[in-house]
Design a protein around this nucleic acid. Structure first.
Lengths: 209, 209
DNA sequence: CTATAATGTAAGTGAACCTTAACTTACATG
DNA sequence: CATGTAAGTTAAGGTTCACTTACATTATAG
């Protein structure tokens, strides 16, 4: 009774639909995500979508779920890498930006009312993802403090919030400006500053004041 | 040919409509902002709205403009107060949160596709407001650095982005959680941490490491 | 009192969408 | 071969909105 390793045809189609949805959301926003647009993008009839999904809400939920899974996986990858905690933090931050930069649908969905109001399930999923992500960051901060690379007089929870906030402010501006600047490069500047703020003060730096 | 000081009746009505719109957006989101809902809220006929506004887009634009003006005014007030730059920063941050907390329509609008995609004018206005706000913060950081209250080895532009990011991460969580926690109190925690990060290191604090 | 501005009522148009119904085709299984 | 299942199509129903138009009514200022 085991599920076959090979994906069923229907699973393939579902995946196609989700990908199409993300693409459309990236270009036109959630408001531009109509069943007809999805059908056109996938190359099937509109009615056929309803053979694979209960309704549009499910399509969107699945799309959001996919994004969350990808982001969590990114974090896992970074956590598994064999470098120090501060470098891990940097990598996580930049990888996150890189991923968003390649999927404009993410901010479109994150800044949509579908996310914030209409689709309760999606909202819940998203909130959970943020919390998981924040917890991962907190752990890295703890590790950094333990190793003496990060100052100990700061609250790890607040640091995680700050780092996520940095992503958000960048992405908001990026979205409002019509994706008109390279997200990751801008992120580098912020990271540099953040790193200086949380680092243990070195005598050398103190002298420069 | 000068505009009379006393508001014309039609101006009063426009103001009423804008207020109603903000209220509705706060409760139902931009998607729930229908012409019939506005008319009901104001207590006039739907057709009458079109005697005061060209279309719904104009109503929404005016609403966004009003929010921007209020936020800028808040910042002005803080800038004019006679306290040190760091305290001004704190006040600006908390006042901003307080203002948002009282107007749930602000995050609803800020996280809407109307803002990010559809209403170009609104988008432009919003971006400009962010920049003005950031510039004000930067000036305060500069002042703080000059007075020796804020460390000099950090980039003011990045600091402003961080502070705005802190607002955003709070507001995003607040919005996703259905406005279920006190925004300002949560902000206090973040501020405390931020203040520690940007403060000049005191010998006393260094000892505690 | 009267002209003008403001508002109400009511009916309707047209477009955009999601969803369902009815029917067909391909294919694997017993 | 007979049958069941999944995948596909076309066509249309039904709803929600923004916005318009025509005409009647009330309020206000001069």
């Amino acid at each position: 009774m085991r599920r076959p390793v090979v994906k069923m045809r229907s699973d393939v189609r579902r995946e196609q639909v989700v990908q199409a949805a993300l693409k459309i959301v990236g270009k036109k926003g959630v408001g531009g995500l109509t069943t007809s647009a999805i059908a056109r993008e996938v190359g099937v009839s509109e009615a056929n979508l309803y053979r694979h999904f209960k309704n549009k809400e499910e399509i969107l939920f699945e799309t959001g779920k996919g994004i969350g899974a990808a982001i969590r996986k990114n974090l896992e990858t970074v956590l598994a890498s064999r470098v120090g905690p501060v470098l891990k933090l940097k990598r996580a931050f930049l990888l996150h930006l890189e991923f968003i930069e390649k999927n404009e649908g993410i901010p479109r969905l994150g800044f949509s009312e579908e996310m914030h109001i209409n689709n309760k399930k999606l909202k819940k999923e998203f909130l959970k993802n943020i919390e998981v992500y924040a917890a991962g960051l907190e752990e890295l901060f703890r590790e950094g403090q333990r190793q003496g690379a990060i100052r100990k007089d700061v609250d790890r929870r607040a640091l995680a919030a700050m780092l996520i906030g940095m992503v958000q402010v960048l992405v908001l501006r990026w979205s409002l400006s019509g994706f008109s600047f390279p997200l990751k490069s801008e992120g580098m500047k912020l990271w540099k500053n953040f790193a200086a703020c949380i680092a243990i003060e070195h005598p050398a730096r103190r002298r420069s004041l």
